[in-house]
Design a protein around this nucleic acid. Structure first.
Length: 922
RNA sequence: AGGACCAUAGCUCAGUUGGUUAGAGCGCUACCUUGACAUGGUAGAGGUCGCCAGUUCGAAUCUGGCUGGUCCUACCA
């Protein structure tokens, strides 16, 4: 074994072996346990959020697999309609072509081809994380089976009246030429202007002033609205104004939507280009004047002069023309929220188009009920509120997209515009008795990607077929997801699954935080602060990292800034930490918080932890291989105190890990394991074992017991750690397991450790605590007195009980080795203590004689500091116990505990005070 | 505007139903290459738990208010 842990080689070797051996497939006779992967976007590459999420799921899966559950982790990707189409369109653009030139069929062919070449990227990366999904069942939302499920769902919802086609305002992306959902629109504050225009009253009696942030929309104005109780305008309601530049007469209407205090209190109403205006228009029967084409140029509905202009050019033109006419009253700077498409980044237009909708309100009621009743539980629970607030105010879901890549809507139109929904053209004709010469054309649109993702839990298991997998693994056990897609995906899955399966998609939704950089900033390409989990595993040098982060940057200034920041943050690049260290870091950060700040310092610490574990295994193997470790059940074995102690502590650790994992507290599990391995097993037990194994007075049974304990505890620890650090545990386990008499092809399929109550040993714990206090007391003296580590000191004990005396007898060798003592003994009756440094272990006093190596003044200082601390403690305790309310009302055992503390502190004070006197008198 | 969440050591975070001397890792200081490990060991410094009230015998923990920060939803043209 190497002196340091080298992850790269063993990771590749073990992963290939696991996958080839089929260890990831379901199996086991226990209850089914199933997780559906939130399908990553097929165009994507692995980012820290994926890494984090996959790692959490893998721990759950490996844990349950080892618990004996029949474990299915369903893996796959989604087709990401817009994103994927954009990628391929950009490729075409680079070739100087576009998709229209290619035609729909050839274009889709091209997308499939691209998917075949690059779609495996993300799954390759998932493998690097050591995840253990059942790759043989990998699915893609555009697969034949899943497409069938999508079609089936669409047709059935249509027939049930839950899908309908309607013409209304949607969020239109003028660069992608498609509708997008509310959730794909990001509205952020930007600097703009508020233009004030005068609209002359038709009767010539003056004008009204309206304010707008989007002047070009005035060409589509249909009315002016004022507040019904606004006295300034009351007499104008019912009159009309002349719309400048257009000449149309607009009615003045009263509506309490208007805010009297904003601007002039008069609002121009453009029903075809604003969601609020649309609603107002409906109330007042106003016409919809659609002034935009699909690409956001002005349509034929505007005066000829403006037709075909881009919306922003038209804006300048309209402002200039109104100014010319003297109708521009003023322009103010104004901050407003501008809606932009999260993919394209362009300003989104509310636009009037025919689209398909799901009647979400009807589907929502049972979905709300499922969470209220506890059939589905969110962890942490607070996310249920987020879910409810979204569900209670649900809008109908626009599911059509004007794209080519996706599930094409199974609807056909005849020349009259009648719609027929069905599996294919032939069945539509047959069902509706349409003659063969009636021309039908299929709807051009595809469905929102989330429509197919909403079916994910059951479509991946074979629905609408009645498969055995569906019966066995559905409902699934837990969904692991980020809070950012509770609306997007979780809610829709619940609605669809309840409707089509009559059961919930999963029992638990575990909501994790979002990974951010060390300053809490969201990681994004444009900020240049993204970390690729693979780079943390393999390492990357500075130049490559800079190149990677600035690649494809449109703005050179931004690239420069990113380069500078990167060079500052990672002057040495990033070193290779390995998968296990990365994973353990993710677990340790997975607390209940919403933000996960990823700090390189943490991963370095856990890389060191891997190395610690590695070296602990090295030590154990060096001492156990080729030796008698008690594999033979006939050989007599006796356990020394230290063995009984570590075995007992192991049981507590096992219990805590179970509790933590059952509550999705990966951070606590990681903490408990780290603490046990490093601070107990390595720091104390391994050191104690050295003493035990070298003890010339020990017998074979005892040495056998210690070796057996060394290997058994390590072997258990490896199994405990395996769900978190799969590679290092597998590699070590292969060498360690035979020493405990276990042989197995893989640790993956070994049972997870369970608490063995018979190994819990309170007495051993107490005695070892005693040993530790003495060792730490002497070490503290040595440390503070600057005694050279190589030098031994002597220790004298006084005032011990019979128990202390017995313990000394039993543990003398351990004390001497661990505290580097030359001798240790009790003072004889009547023997006076020499000038010494003092430590206390309860009643027991420990003296380390000064005898030339300890500084009297330094010891006086040390005693004084300790006495001051005790003084503070006494004050606190006396204050508490002098309070009659406390003594009367607090539970008796609490009062008793405080009294004991007080007595102990008083005694410590007396002892140390006496010692100080003694030193001062010298 | 409404709602949610957060505020604990220099940094990143734990702290279970109120009772601990408030913990961990990283960082910091001193000493040490001792036979598993310098990706290490030993010892140490460092916190009036954001602020103010209240409930209680007792508050980091419960309640209210304030301040600061993050996010979500809805948006005023």
């Amino acid at each position: 074994m190497d002196k340091t842990f080298k992850p790269a080689e063993i990771e590749k070797r073990w992963y290939a072996h696991w996958e080839e051996s089929g260890y990831f497939a379901p199996g086991g006779s226990g209850d089914p346990y199933c997780i559906m992967i939130p399908p990553p976007n097929v165009t994507g590459s692995l980012h820290m959020g994926h890494g984090f999420q996959q790692t959490l799921m893998d721990a759950l899966i490996r844990y349950h697999r080892m618990l004996g559950n029949d474990t299915l982790w369903q893996v796959g990707t989604d087709h990401a309609g817009i994103a994927t189409q954009m990628v391929v369109e950009r490729q075409l653009e680079a070739e100087g072509r576009d998709r229209h030139e290619l035609g729909r069929e050839a274009f889709i062919e091209r997308v499939w081809q691209w998917k075949g070449e690059s779609g495996g990227n993300i799954t390759r990366q998932l493998r690097r994380l050591g995840t253990s999904p059942d790759w043989s069942r990998e699915r893609f939302t555009m697969d034949e089976g899943l497409s069938r499920a999508v079609q089936e769902v669409f047709i059935r919802l249509y027939r049930e009246g839950l899908i309908y086609r309607g013409q209304r305002l949607v969020n239109w992306d003028p660069s992608l030429h498609t509708a997008i959902s509310d959730l794909e629109v990001i509205a952020e504050e930007e600097q703009g202007h508020l233009w004030h225009f005068r609209y002359p009253l038709s009767d010539g009696s003056g004008h009204l002033t309206v304010a707008t942030t989007r002047p070009e929309t005035m060409l589509g104005d249909a009315a002016i609205a004022v507040h019904p109780e606004d006295e300034r305008y009351a007499q104008l309601v019912g009159k009309t104004v002349d719309l400048p530049l257009v000449g149309r007469q607009l009615p003045i209407v009263a509506d309490d939507y208007v805010d009297r205090d904003f601007g002039t209190g008069c609002v121009k109403i453009t029903p075809a280009h604003d969601f609020n205006d649309y609603a107002l228009g409906q109330r007042h029967g106003l016409p919809l004047i659609n002034i935009l084409n699909a690409d956001a140029t002005l349509s034929d509905a505007v005066p000829e002069f403006y037709r075909g202009l881009d919306r922003f050019t038209a804006r300048e033109r309209v402002v200039a023309d109104l100014e010319q006419l003297g109708l521009l009253e003023k322009v103010e700077d104004h901050t407003l929220k501008v809606p932009r498409g999260d993919r394209s980044g362009v300003v989104i237009e509310p636009w009037l188009t025919p689209q398909w909708y799901v009647d979400a309100k009807k589907l929502a009621a049972p979905a709300i009920e499922a969470v209220e009743s506890g059939a589905i539980a969110f962890v942490p629970k607070q996310w249920e509120n987020t879910y409810f607030s979204w569900m209670r105010d649900l809008q109908d879901w626009c599911i059509s997209r004007q794209l080519w890549w996706g599930h094409r809507i199974p609807a056909w139109y005849d020349p009259e515009g009648n719609v027929y929904v069905g599996e294919d053209e032939a069945s539509v004709r047959a069902e509706h008795g349409l003659s063969d010469n009636l021309p039908l054309h299929r709807d051009e649109d595809v469905l929102d990607t989330w429509f197919s993702s909403a079916l994910w839990t059951f479509s991946t298991l074979g629905w609408p077929e009645d498969t055995p997998e569906l019966a066995r693994y559905h409902p699934t056990s837990v969904l692991v997801t980020g809070f950012d897609i509770i609306f997007f995906w979780v809610a829709r899955m619940i609605m669809m699954t309840l409707h089509f399966r009559g059961e919930v998609p999963f029992h638990t939704v575990y909501v994790h935080g979002l990974v951010r950089d060390s300053e809490g900033q969201k990681m994004s390409k444009s900020k240049g602060n993204v970390l690729d989990p693979i780079d943390l595993i393999d390492g990357i040098d500075l130049e490559d990292l800079v190149a990677k982060r600035t690649a494809g940057m449109m703005q050179p200034r931004l690239a420069e800034k990113i380069e500078k920041a990167t060079r500052q943050h990672y002057p040495e690049g990033i070193s290779a930490y390995g998968t296990d260290a990365l994973r353990f870091t993710f677990y340790s950060l997975a607390s209940t918080g919403r933000d996960i700040k990823f700090d390189l310092g943490r991963i370095e610490g856990y890389r060191n932890f891997c190395n610690k574990l590695w070296n602990a295994a090295r030590y154990v193997l060096m001492n156990a291989e080729g030796e008698d470790c008690g594999q033979d059940p006939e050989a007599p074995v006796s356990y020394h105190l230290v063995d009984r102690w570590i075995r007992s502590r192991l049981q507590e650790t096992i219990g805590e890990v179970h509790r933590a994992l059952d509550n999705y507290r990966f951070d606590l599990a990681a903490q408990v394991l780290y603490d046990f391995v490093w601070n107990e097993y390595c720091d104390w037990y391994l050191e104690l074992s050295k003493v035990a194994l070298r003890d010339p007075t020990g017998d074979d049974a005892a040495r056998r017991g210690t070796r057996q304990t060394l290997v058994q505890v390590l072997e258990s620890v490896l199994r405990l750690l395996h769900p978190f650090m799969p590679f290092i545990t597998e590699e070590s386990w292969q060498s360690v397991a035979p020493l405990v008499g276990v042989r197995g092809a893989t640790i993956m399929r070994q049972p997870y450790p369970e608490v063995d109550p018979s190994s819990v040993d309170k007495a051993a714990s107490a005695e070892l605590e005693w040993l530790k206090i003495i060792v730490l007391g002497v070490r503290n003296i040595r440390g503070e007195m600057n005694v050279a580590p190589g030098k031994t000191v002597d220790a004298l004990l006084r005032n011990g009980t019979e128990n202390d005396k017995k313990r000394l007898l039993d543990n003398q060798t351990f004390l001497m080795q661990l505290a580097r003592l030359g001798s240790i003994r009790f003072l004889a009756d009547g023997e006076s203590a020499p000038a010494a440094a003092t430590a206390l272990a309860g009643d027991l006093e420990i003296f380390v004689p000064l005898a030339g190596l300890i500084d009297r003044e330094a010891e006086l200082g040390r005693l004084t500091r300790e006495l001051n601390r005790i003084e503070g403690e006494l004050k606190r305790l006396r204050g508490k116990l002098d309070n009659p309310g406390f003594v009367a009302k607090a539970p008796a055992e609490v009062v008793e505990r405080e009294r004991e503390k007080l007595a102990a502190q008083e005694q410590a004070q007396a002892r140390l005070e006496a010692q100080r006197q003694a030193l001062e008198d010298m």
